[in-house]
Simulated scan of single mutants.
Amino acid sequence: MSYHDAWALAGDGPGHTWTTANPSARTVIEQVVGQGAHHRRIDYVFVGSRLTHPKAQCTIDTAALAFDRPVDGTWASDHFGVVVDLDITIA
């Protein structure tokens, strides 16, 4: 595999980024999917492997959701983002 899913390696939990728990997404999800309680991950960060970048080494330190809570009652988007901390060394 040339690229790795950062969430699968360093995330905690399912990492759903598109969910009816977000009121900004609920109507569209109900229209598109046709189910009331739906959630899945549609946002990814892919990191190249050593095969892809032989002169660089990358360690995925953390992966977390972003914008997954409202601020003053307002949701930032209709889906959540993924934030990844990487440690990259170039040889």
Results as ranks from 00 to 15, higher is better:
Lys55Asp: 12
Thr74Ser: 08
Thr74Ile: 09
Phe67Tyr: 14
Thr20Val: 03
Phe46Gln: 10
Val45Lys: 06
Arg50Thr: 08
Gly36Gln: 04
Leu9Ala: 02
Gly15Glu: 00
Asn22Tyr: 09
Gly11His: 00
Ile29Thr: 04
Gly48Pro: 11
Glu30Ile: 01
Val45Thr: 07
Val71Ala: 04
Gly48Arg: 12
Arg69Gly: 12
Gly13Ala: 06
His16Gly: 08
Val71Tyr: 09
Gly73Ala: 07
Cys58Met: 09
His38Trp: 07
Ser49Pro: 12
Val33Asn: 07
Pro14Ile: 12
Thr27Ser: 14
Ala25Asn: 04
Lys55Arg: 11
Val71Cys: 03
Pro70Ser: 01
Thr20Pro: 00
Tyr44Ser: 12
Leu51Ile: 15
Thr27Ala: 14
Ser24Lys: 15
Gly73Met: 05
Ala25Thr: 03
Pro54Arg: 03
Ser49Cys: 14
Ser49Trp: 07
Gly13Trp: 11
Trp18Cys: 06
Leu65Gln: 01
Ser49Asp: 11
His16Leu: 07
Asp68Lys: 01
Val45Phe: 07
Thr20Ile: 10
Ser24Trp: 13
Thr62Val: 02
His53Ser: 13
Gly11Trp: 05
Cys58Pro: 09
His39Ala: 13
Trp75Gln: 01
Ser24Asp: 15
Asp61Arg: 05
Pro23Ile: 00
Gly11Arg: 02
Asp61Asn: 08
Val33Thr: 01
Ala10Ser: 00
Lys55Met: 04
Val32Thr: 03
His38Thr: 08
His16Asn: 07
Gly36Lys: 05
Trp75Val: 04
Arg41Ile: 08
Thr59Arg: 02
Gln31Ile: 10
Ser24Ile: 13
Asp43Ser: 11
Gly73Trp: 01
Ile29Asp: 03
Ala21Asn: 15
Ala25His: 02
His39Thr: 12
Thr27Asp: 15
Asn22Val: 06
Thr19Val: 06
Thr74Leu: 12
Ala64Thr: 06
Arg50Tyr: 09
Asp12Glu: 10
Thr62Ala: 08
Pro23Phe: 00
Gly34Ile: 05
Ala66Thr: 15
Ala25Gln: 03
Ala63Tyr: 05
Val28Ile: 04
Glu30Val: 08
His38Lys: 04
Arg26Pro: 14
Ala63Gly: 03
Asp72Thr: 13
Ala56Asp: 03
Thr19Leu: 06
Arg26Asn: 13
Tyr44Gln: 12
Arg69Cys: 14
Leu9Asn: 08
Gln35Arg: 07
Arg41Gly: 01
Val32Trp: 10
Gln35Trp: 11
Asp12Gln: 07
Phe46Ala: 11
Ile42Cys: 05
Arg50Leu: 02
Tyr44His: 14
Ala63Phe: 11
His39Ser: 15
Gly48Ser: 10
Leu9Cys: 01
Pro23Arg: 00
Val32Glu: 07
Ile60Pro: 04
Tyr44Asp: 13
Gly15Leu: 05
